[in-house]
């Protein structure tokens, strides 16, 4: 079950996230769990596969905002990285970066679904 301890182990900056929620743990955990309903992760993956850098930027930007507000550092950091590359529409192999994002997302997903 998703808990503050689990998120700490995951590497999230829980203090920061909780501050934004007036230290209401229940509310914070509810928001973290909602990330599975966020369409931006799926949209980013698909846009990268289609090599649609504009759509990929928009999705990455959205995901960045959410992960940064929730202070989910392991996911947030590679997402910030890819957002900046996509902002300038850099033509490159996004595979390795997407793998990092994918792994961080899946770890989080497991925590939520546990």
């Amino acid at each position: 079950m998703l808990s503050i301890e689990n998120l700490k182990e995951y590497g999230a900056d829980v203090e920061e996230g909780l501050t934004r929620c007036y230290n209401n743990e229940e509310f914070y955990l509810k928001l973290v769990a909602m990330i599975l309903d966020e369409p931006s992760f799926g949209a980013l993956k698909k846009a990268i596969e289609d090599n649609d850098l504009t759509a990929a930027f928009e999705a990455a930007h959205g995901l960045k905002g959410v992960t940064a507000n929730l202070a989910l550092s392991p996911l947030r950091d590679p997402v910030i990285e890819i957002t900046e590359l996509l902002r300038s529409r850099t033509e490159m192999d996004y595979g390795p970066l997407m793998t990092r994002i994918d792994e961080a997302y899946k770890r989080l997903e497991e925590l939520i679904r546990e």
Partner: peptide, 8 residues
């Protein structure tokens, strides 16, 4: 547009 940000 992001529900999480909106609620927060």
């Amino acid at each position: 547009d992001e529900a999480i940000n909106r609620l927060m």
